[in-house]
Amino acid sequence: MTHAVELPLWAAIVVACLLLLGAFLTLVGSIGLLRLRDFYARVHAPTLATTLGIGCVLLASMLFFTVLQTRPVLHEVLITAFMVLTTPVTLMLLTRASLYRDRREGSPDVPPIPARPLPKDGAER
C-alpha cells in the first residue's frame, strides 16, 4: 500500500467506508442466496450485490484513482451502466426458464398457465 501514502485522510476514510459498505452488501446478498427457501425468493438476493454492492465499490475506486492521479477517472461508470442494464435481462430470462421447467413438471408451487381467452366472433384476428 505504498502508493496510498500521499492520499489525503478524508479521501482514505470515504474510500474505506464505501469499500466496507459494498463488501458487506455483497455478503448480505450471497447469504440471502444461501438461506432463502425457494428459487423465486432466491433470485432477488444477488441483485443487492449487482446494484448496491458493485456500485459502492465502483464509487470507491473512482474516488481513489481520481484523488491519486489528480484528474477525473470515470471509466468505472462503464461497469455500472453495464451491470444495471444486463442484470434484469439475465435474471428475467432465468426466471422464465425456471417457470417453464416448473410448469412442465406440474409443480404445485407455481400458478398454472392462464387459460387463453376465446376469440370473440367479429373481433380482430
Binding site: 501514502v5 474510500v15 466496507l20 450471497s30
Partner: peptide, 20 residues
Amino acid sequence: MSAAILFWAVLVAQLLLAAA
C-alpha cells in the same frame, strides 16, 4: 495514517467478499 486505514479496509472487504 491514510495508508493504514485503507490497508485494513481493503483487507476486511476482501475477507467479506471471500465469504460471499
